[in-house]
């Protein structure tokens, strides 16, 4: 097996180990219902983290996604509740706004050679501020379309596959296709591998950078819409710190933070592992739910140290010259 698959395999093994350990301790832990709920409850985080995967693969970072989620949810709620738009009209507008937001950040990063960290940090404050200015209060949504979408779904093996889960599956398939069957996917890996070489090989740097941040913001906006349906409201303080959860999921999923190595499947597993830890704590009952953060923190640390070891296998060979 090639060394580049090791991190994602480790993530998968860890997921299975957690599942087995949990089901030995609690009956019903590994049931289809719990697993499918995991997908539903974490669908917005997973969609966001899939976008983040491409950013990190390219060697960048996007800190604005949590705020973009909030801004999208407030925008969606205002358009539907205050202006009486049909959600099917509001959703495309919100997605386009998210895409434009990401495109601007990407363009700033490329044209002015700015650090993605700084640009998206500014974007984070900007989007959060704008969301709060639009509405300080949470806006409940009562539109009937929301109920019908939330009620849509079918049950499988005692579990429920709802619209959020279906959307996640579509986004995941799109991510797979983008990463491995398009030129853009290759360019994103190339950028993360070595941006100087990528430029010398004729990779369109500007277009690629802008596409990456546009994609991340669009998916963050989409996850904002999912979140809006999930909570049936728009609130400017939702998703605070969620960008960090997304980054953690990507890292636990085995993607190298310096870019170039990683898989979208890993990210999905990373989100599931984080969800599984949360589930385990709620099954446990007596543990404070903040223990989740401690476990996730330890996992992220362990993965980063583990990747240091692995990358001695594939990342540092070029330093031999």
């Amino acid at each position: 097996m090639s060394a580049r698959f090791i991190p994602v395999v480790v993530t998968a093994v860890l997921f299975l180990a957690l599942l087995i350990a949990g089901s030995l301790q609690f009956s019903g832990f590994a049931s289809p219902r719990v697993l499918l709920n995991l997908l539903t409850d974490n669908s917005f985080l997973a969609i966001m983290a899939l976008g983040m995967t491409f950013v990190i693969l390219s060697g960048g970072i996007d800190l604005s996604v949590g705020s973009v989620l909030a801004l999208s949810s407030v925008l969606c709620a205002i358009l539907v509740e205050k202006h009486g738009w049909h959600p099917l009209q509001a959703i495309p507008v919100v997605l386009i706004a998210g895409a434009a937001f990401g495109a601007i950040m990407g363009a700033l990063i490329h044209v002015y050679k700015l650090q993605p960290f700084i640009v998206t940090l500014a974007g984070m404050f900007f989007a959060r501020g704008l969301a709060t200015v639009l509405s300080e209060q949470s806006i409940p949504i009562t539109h009937s379309f929301f109920d019908s979408v939330n009620n849509f779904g079918f049950s499988v093996l005692g579990g429920w596959i709802g619209s959020a889960t279906l959307l996640l599956i579509v986004v995941f398939a799109f991510g797979l296709w983008l990463a491995h069957f398009t030129r853009l996917g290759g360019y994103i890996y190339a950028l993360g591998g070595n941006s100087t070489s990528a430029a010398l090989l004729g990779v369109p740097m500007g277009l690629t950078t802008i596409s990456i941040y546009t994609l991340s913001s669009t998916l963050a906006a989409l996850s904002g819409i999912v979140y809006t349906f999930y909570t049936a409201s728009g609130y400017a303080l939702s998703g605070v710190g969620m960008e960090l959860d997304a980054i953690a999921a990507v890292v636990i999923g085995g993607t190298l933070l310096t870019g170039g190595y990683g898989y979208v499947l890993g990210t999905l597993l990373g989100v599931m592992i984080m969800g599984l830890i949360q589930t385990w704590i709620s099954f446990h009952g007596s543990l404070n739910s903040w223990w989740t953060k401690i476990f996730i923190g330890s996992l992220v640390l362990a993965f980063i140290i583990f990747q240091r070891g692995i990358s001695a296998g594939f990342g540092t060979k070029k330093a031999k010259i």
Binding site: R4, R183, G186, Y187, Y189, A190, G192, G193, N194, T196, S197, A198, L200, L201, G202, V203, G260, Y261, F314, G315, K317, K318, I321
Partner: peptide, 16 residues
């Protein structure tokens, strides 16, 4: 070497 260490040999040859 100004190629991409993380991509496959084939991908390096035909990138773009």
């Amino acid at each position: 070497v100004n190629l991409l260490p993380n991509l496959s040999v084939a991908h390096n040859l035909y990138l773009g």
